[in-house]
Design a protein around this nucleic acid. Structure first.
Lengths: 131, 131
DNA sequence: CTGTATCCTTAGGGATACTG
DNA sequence: CAGTATCCCTAAGGATACAG
């Protein structure tokens, strides 16, 4: 992705930034599933490969959509957090959920997830504007 | 795309449907640029290859997001139209535009495009609910 | 005009082993 | 725990020529 830039179109720009089948799953995990660690991202239902995950995390960091923080000595590990730029994808993700809820049987059968998204929408948008 | 289905997650479902670098450009052309013909899609700034375009048009039709209509004998050619399912992507596209407007210099420098999107948002959402 | 067909190249991705 | 490294393979994509 982010292959140089195909045009000045905003849709095209967005697709260059996250128009693939994996990137937004990482954002989803950060946004809705409150995951912050490499090992947590790995255990998703979609079974992302380790090299793919590492690649996407690096690209998201390069694009300024997440931050990577080496935790203090006593607390082990690395933590990923959304930046404002990443948080600003929340409305987009919510629209994806709503679209799927309307047009996909499996999603429609999961009213709790959709309800959560609808509740979160307010909270997330509030969080975004609060930044 | 649409490789069987990776999980029941709505985000994942949406990505399986249009999570690539080309599909949403076709939707954009239908939605914002009022293109309806194969030859029109081809002349975009992104220079889509003929085989890619044909592939995406077919997949979009298979997914029920667009219709393909052979025009009457006197009027030559084929016309593509968005279905309700395709039209329902309008809010998503608008969110993409707004995100790019905020985070991309080139987009921010195009206030007319963004303004159009904002105006269209109302009209498009009205159109969607009207269906 | 609306595509197919073909060729060929590259990028994406799965599996698995391994390292600081 | 947080990744790299490798291998190997398939799918995606560009170019171009051709067809109904």
């Amino acid at each position: 992705m982010a292959a140089s830039r195909r045009s000045d179109c905003p849709i095209s720009f967005a697709l260059d930034a996250f128009g693939d089948r994996w990137t937004l799953l990482v954002i989803r995990d950060l946004l809705f599933k409150h995951k912050h660690r490499y090992s947590e991202f790995l255990v998703s239902e979609e079974r992302m490969a380790t090299n793919i995950l590492a690649d996407r995390l690096r690209k998201l960091e390069d694009a300024g959509m997440i931050t990577r923080t080496k935790a203090a000595r006593n607390a082990g590990g690395v933590t990923y957090e959304l930046t404002e730029k990443g948080l600003d994808l929340a409305p987009l993700l919510v629209e994806m959920i709503l679209w799927s809820a309307k047009h996909d049987a499996a999603t429609a059968a999961e009213p709790e997830f959709v309800a959560t998204a609808l509740q979160d929408k307010q909270a997330l948008l509030a969080a975004v504007t609060r930044l």
